[in-house]
């Protein structure tokens, strides 16, 4: 991971604690989701975000109220980080009426108008032009908002990504293209799928600036996010952030994991873990004691356990929900 790294900064205790909490919430939430899947309470696909927490937490720290985000099916972390409730996300995972899509969307398809979260998309790459379209609307309306369009290293090969780059640059759309490069698309490593070593450099052909960032360092991600957002908001058009990260778990729940070694995963976990990194910063700077952090851990476990309880208790959707939300009604 040869990417820019910033670590020693004068970041405040409150900020560090905020990142720590947010990342830990995602990790514990995802562990719980994995457990509920194993118990058969969650079905279908369930793509966990464990390992990648610093990406969304860093970028959300660079966003302003009203900015938008859109991503793929690996979306639980993005939702928690933009302020959506753990209860509603978990209840969607179990397919219950208390979920963000009333149980009709599932793990891959959740949305929140209130939090400006535009999904949760299951078709690899499809969210990229959608993100540019959100930015198109913002520019059209002149509201000064910026959109984060997240996609994977695998998605970065889809043709529609480059059609979008062209139009976003041509029309100076305020969109940050966030490549969450976790090095694998299912069982295919970046080297086996992608002709260029640095994906962000592909933006150069379209005149879009970009950079690679160490995605296991939340402070580096936040700093890069601020640069990108300032660029977009000032009317200069799109920006690309290729954030080098790593997924610890399988692609979805059924992943034979034969495409990488156990040691590779273990090494990154031990040496690069984003949560451990912030934990170390908190402890070495004497901002917190082990006890303080234990108390946070306990709080977060309580939030996650409550969400699991909510997701089990929330009733299944009423049967007539099968027939609702297919067409919008014209306003009277």
């Amino acid at each position: 991971m040869a990417a820019k790294k910033t670590s020693k900064t004068n970041v405040s205790k409150d900020d560090l604690l905020h990142y720590y909490r947010e990342m830990l919430l995602i990790r514990r939430f995802e562990e719980k989701a994995g457990q509920l899947y194993g118990m058969g309470l969650i079905g279908g696909f369930c793509h966990l975000y464990i390992g990648q927490e610093a990406v969304v937490v860093g970028l959300e720290a660079a966003a302003e109220e009203g900015d938008k985000r859109v991503t793929s099916y690996r979306d639980h972390g993005h939702m928690l980080a933009c302020g959506m409730e753990a209860n509603g996300v978990m209840a969607e995972l179990t397919g219950r009426s208390g979920g963000y899509s009333k149980g009709k969307g599932g793990s891959m398809h959740m949305f929140s108008k209130e939090k400006h979260f535009y999904g949760g998309h299951g078709i690899v790459g499809a969210q990229v032009p959608i993100g540019a379209g959100l930015a198109f609307a913002d520019k059209y309306l002149g509201n000064g908002r910026v959109t984060f369009a997240y996609f994977g290293d695998g998605a970065a090969n889809q043709g529609q990504v480059y059609e979008t780059f062209n139009m976003a640059a041509l029309w100076d759309l305020p969109v940050v293209f966030v490549i969450e490069n976790n090095q694998y698309a299912m069982g295919t490593s970046q080297q086996r799928s992608t002709s260029s070593a640095e994906i962000y450099e592909r933006g150069r052909a379209f005149g879009i600036p970009g950079e690679a960032i160490d995605g296991m360092d939340v402070l580096a991600v936040k700093a890069a996010g601020e640069t990108a957002v300032a660029h977009c908001r000032s009317g200069k058009g799109p920006y690309i952030l290729e954030i080098k990260t790593y997924r610890y778990r399988g692609h979805s729940m059924s992943d034979p994991a034969k495409y990488r070694t156990r040691e590779e995963v273990q090494k990154i976990r031990e040496e690069k873990d984003a949560i451990e990194h912030v934990r170390d910063l908190l402890l070495t700077s004497k901002h917190c004691s082990e006890e303080d952090l234990k108390a946070i851990d306990k709080d977060i476990k309580a939030v996650v356990n409550e969400s699991a309880e909510f997701a089990k208790q929330s009733p299944e959707p009423a049967l007539d929900e099968l027939w609702t939300d297919i067409y919008a009604q014209a306003e009277a």
Partner: peptide, 14 residues
């Protein structure tokens, strides 16, 4: 049925 496929177990069955 003439609807997009729902995720919830009870609705999917229907």
């Amino acid at each position: 049925k003439d609807v997009p496929m729902p995720y919830a177990a009870n609705l999917e069955k229907l």
